[in-house]
């Protein structure tokens, strides 16, 4: 195994749980106590007849972080339903944003290199599976999903974790997430290797849901080793990314999200001076 013979391409995606008191689509407060489901409302449990009502504070925090990263806020963004039969998705779908995200562009900068962001989307947190049952205490929490461009990383694991730490610092400075809470900022890395100097590109494999720089580094290093070993033996790397075969539908219960200049300025006012 010799990883210097391979070009390593990594696409990073971050999920930031915004520090709102209530959920993205219901005025129900997030449960902080240990009692599971103690404060879960009818919308979060997907009881029939319930409808989403957008939490404007979540939108404001999302705008604030997007501005701090230099992203362009879309005047109109749209919601979609991303379908999957899964016990963690009580509605049978996740309400998120699709082709028309909240913001595009922006960068995370590290020692002279920049990770360019392609899209920034608002979405709702799923329920969490614990010992065979679903914990809805954080279900429906607002998530900001930040997708970065795939880029060749020469010092792959360290460089990737540097971007995560840089984003953590911005999140802390902007105050949009409770960065002391475990799981407030998570990261997926789509890793692909290809022999240097050869035509073509490698299959993408994802290491998912990593919550700290060291964990991300370890996962990426292990994945690089795994793929390099396969390639060195002349074997094919099978693509392993989260199943992309979802059904989507425009979310009929939410009008398009319109963000005017005044709203952007209000959000900007929430940023500390150096980030405005």
């Amino acid at each position: 195994m010799n990883m210097r013979e391979h070009t390593v391409t990594i696409g990073l995606e971050f999920r930031c749980r915004l520090a709102t008191r209530t959920r993205l689509f219901s005025p129900c407060a997030m449960a902080m106590s240990a009692a599971p489901d103690s404060q879960v409302d009818a919308y979060t449990l997907a009881l029939p007849g319930t409808l989403p009502a957008l939490n404007r504070q979540a939108v404001e925090l999302a705008i604030r972080l997007a501005l701090a990263l230099g992203a362009a806020i879309a005047p109109v963004s749209r919601w979609v339903r991303r379908h999957a039969f899964d016990p963690s998705l009580p509605k049978g779908y996740q309400t998120t944003q699709g082709e028309a995200p909240l913001a595009r562009g922006g960068t995370i900068e590290v020692a002279g290199r920049a990770l360019r962001l392609t899209s920034i989307r608002l979405a709702e947190h799923a329920g969490e599976l614990r010992n065979g049952s679903v914990d809805f205490s954080r279900a429906g929490a607002p998530l900001l999903e930040l997708a970065g461009e795939s880029m060749i990383m020469r010092a792959a694991p360290e460089e990737a974790s540097a971007y995560l730490r840089a984003l953590q610092a911005i999140v802390r400075a902007t105050g949009v997430a409770d960065s002391d809470m475990p799981g407030a900022l998570r990261c997926d890395a789509h890793v692909s290797l290809w022999p240097k100097g050869q035509e073509g590109s490698g299959a993408r494999c994802t290491v998912a849901d990593l919550g700290s720089g060291p964990a991300l580094e370890r996962a990426i290093a292990a994945e690089i080793q795994r793929q390099a070993a396969l390639l060195d033996q002349g074997l094919v790397v099978a693509s392993m990314t989260p199943e992309a075969n979802h059904l989507y539908l425009p979310e009929p219960d939410l009008p398009p999200l319109r963000i005017d200049a005044a709203w952007i300025e209000r959000a900007r006012a929430g940023l500390p001076d150096p980030l405005r």
Binding site: A46, F85, P87, G92, L249, P252
Partner: peptide, 15 residues
């Protein structure tokens, strides 16, 4: 299509 989407929540686990 909308019925398919709206009836996805009836998965027999909650009510």
């Amino acid at each position: 299509a909308l019925a398919t989407s709206n009836l996805a929540r009836f998965d027999g686990t909650r009510y």
